[in-house]
Design a protein around this nucleic acid. Sequence first.
DNA 1: GCGACAG
DNA 2: ATCTTGTCGC
Length: 230
Amino acid sequence: MKLTRMKIDIQKLKAIQLDYAERVIRYDVLDFVTPTLIAGTDVGFEDGGAITRAAIAVLNYPDLTLLEYQVARLPTEFPYIPGYLSFREYPALVAAWKKLRCKPDLVIVDGQGIAHPRRLGIASHLGLLLDIPTIGVAKRRLCGTHQILSSEVGSSTPLMDDHERIGFVLQSKARCKPLYISLGHRISDTTALTWIQRLLRGYRLPEPTRWADAIASRKPLFNKWLIDQI
DNA sequence: GCGACAG
DNA sequence: ATCTTGTCGC
């Protein structure tokens, strides 16, 4: 069916999100156990949006070297609707996850965790579906407000929504737009922020996400890695 | 009614 | 997200 003709029952999707949101765990053993395998995700589109492409990069911690990656391509069957992004992207991400031989202990997802109108951004949704600890790292804000952020690299400030702390805004690199960090599933918000800071290596995005981006877009970073593998 | 709005 | 050239700053 054509994307432009499909009818979407937003009320039903909203009910699903509210139901799922109640099951999100905001703490886990990950709060005091150090993960060994950390993955990053990136989703892109091909053929004018007809194909959804999901990439997952698994890095070793603490050296942050690429251990494995998988890419999955599926026909796109859902449009982009702010607040309902996960319904468009999770099928391809789950497909890529199933292809992984090394299952990560923690996944950094590109998008919001609980910093979402109904507390179920794609990081939380994916974490629940796969029952894994996840952290949401978004390049732009979806909801919430915050104090003016210091321009100093590494500085952060709480992201608030109706007196609830839903995440943090982080200045990950000088002269760059900040990142929006929120817990996805099975991790506390403060631990989530700490891990993202720990995964930064001088770039705006944390390494797992950077690698997933490079793989999905065939960037130099990834091409050089491929050559070194031979 | 108007503006906001992850990727 | 994707389409795209030049351009500003480190």
